[in-house]
Nucleic acid binder design. Sequence first.
DNA 1: GAAACAGTGTCGCCCTGGTGACAATCTGCA
DNA 2: TGCAGATTGTCACCAGGGCGACACTGTTTC
Lengths: 240, 240
Amino acid sequence: MRNAALDPISDMLATDPWFGGIAPVRRESLLREARVETLEGGARIYGAGDPPNGLWAVIDGQIRLKSLSANGAELLALIVRPGTWFGELSTLDGHPRPHDATAFGPARLLHVPMAAFARAAEAHPALYRDLGLLVCAHQRTALRFIAHSVGRSIRARLAQALLRASHAETGHAETRHAEEGRIGEAPVVIRQEDLAAVVGIARQTLNRHLKQFERSGLVSIAYARVEILDVPALRAIATE
Amino acid sequence: MRNAALDPISDMLATDPWFGGIAPVRRESLLREARVETLEGGARIYGAGDPPNGLWAVIDGQIRLKSLSANGAELLALIVRPGTWFGELSTLDGHPRPHDATAFGPARLLHVPMAAFARAAEAHPALYRDLGLLVCAHQRTALRFIAHSVGRSIRARLAQALLRASHAETGHAETRHAEEGRIGEAPVVIRQEDLAAVVGIARQTLNRHLKQFERSGLVSIAYARVEILDVPALRAIATE
DNA sequence: GAAACAGTGTCGCCCTGGTGACAATCTGCA
DNA sequence: TGCAGATTGTCACCAGGGCGACACTGTTTC
C-alpha cells in the first residue's frame, strides 16, 4: 500500500520541526492516508465556520490563513509555506474552522481527510498526541504574537510582520534558499493594504513607515511587493 | 487507592466544560494522581521560562497568568477561576512555561505533577488526546482574543477586558453565583494600572473610559476594584 | 490616629495615527 | 498600444491617546 510517489515529498516534509519530530511509523501511516491535491490560485481549502475537513500540508505554493476581525476587516493571520502542516486545530477538536484558508497562487497540498486521520489514529493512537503537539506549537506562536503586539510601536510590529511574511522569522530560511544560491530573501508578494491589515494600521500610515524603512535601506518596495534587504536590522527593530 | 476527600472537588470540577467532557474513567485516573495544594496570596505556582511542573486546576481562589510584553511591561494574560484547569501547554509539549502563574489571594489548587500525569496517561493513553483538546480550547480563546483586539476601539476592548476579568465572558457565570443568591457579578479586584495594561493603554486613558462607563451605569468603581453592573450592555459594547 | 504608601481623578500639551482626497504609477487585458 | 482597474505616494486636517504633573482619597502599618 505504499505510495512511492510520495517519497520526495516525504523527505521535504521531514524538514518540518513538527513532522520531523514524530515517530517514523506514524509519519508513514499519515502519509499512507494522504492524497496530493493541486489547487489554482485563489482556491479555497476551507472557510471560517466550516466543519473540519482534515489535516493539510503545503508542498508547493503559499496558503494564507485569514480571519475576520471583529469590525469586519480582513485579518491576515498567517502565511503558510512549503513543509508546514496546518488545519490541526479543528481536526483535533472537531469544532468549526477559525480561519479561511486560501491558496495564494497555484499550490500543491497534501490532504489527510478526517476519516483518513481517524483510520491512521486507530492504528497509532499516539497520533492524537502528535497532533496535540502541533496545536501546542501553534499556540506558542499565538502567545508570542500577543505578547509582541500589545503596546509595541508600529515600527517594531511592522518589522516583525515583514519577517513573518517572509520566512525569516525563525531563522531557518537559509536551508530553503541555499539550493537556489540566493543570499537574500524572496520578495514578499503582498499589497500594502493587506500588510497594513496585518499590523492593524491604516494603509497610509503603513506606507509612511515602509518608506522610512526603504530610505534606511532595510527593504525595497515595488508594486504589490516588498523585498527584504536587511534581515538583521529588521530583527533588531522588531525586538527593540 | 481512592481519595474520598476529593469527591466534592470532583463534582465541582465536572462543571468545567473540558474536564466534564472527558471520559469518567480518565477523570478518575487523573484525580487519583492529584494532590491538593494550599497557597498563600502571592505564591508562585510557576514562572515564565520554567520547565513544566505539571497540570493544575483551581479549587478556590484566583490564579493570574502573566507574561512580559516585549517592551518589558507586565501583561495580564488570564485570570483563572475555580473549576478551570491550566498549565496544560507545557505539560503536553514539555517546553518552558510561557507565563508566570501566581495566586492572587489565598488559593487551593489541585496539582497533577508531570510524573503523575505520565503514570495516568500510561494507563489511559487517551489522556494525551484529552490534554490536546484543552490546548485546543485555549488556542481558540487566544485566536478570538487576537481577532477581537486588532483595530478595535478602546471602548470595545475595555468592555471585553472587564467581562473577561469578571467571569461573565462565557455566560455560564450564573451557575456559580446562584448558590450565593447574588444576581450581579462579583467585583473585579484589580488596579486600574493593571487593567490599563490588559487593554494596552495608559492608566489615564483607561480612567477616562472607565469613568464614562460608570456615568452610564455600566460599572461601579471603588479603590482597586471595579464592579460590573450591566453585563448585557457591556457585551453589546464589546461586540460593537 | 498619624504617617507612609498605594491608587485614583484630572489637567494640558504634544505627537501619532486615522481619514478623505487625489495624483501618479503599475498591471493585465482587449 | 491603450485603456480600465488596481495600487502606491502624499497631502492636510482632526480626533484621540501618551505622558508628566499633581492633588486627592483610600489603605496599611506602627
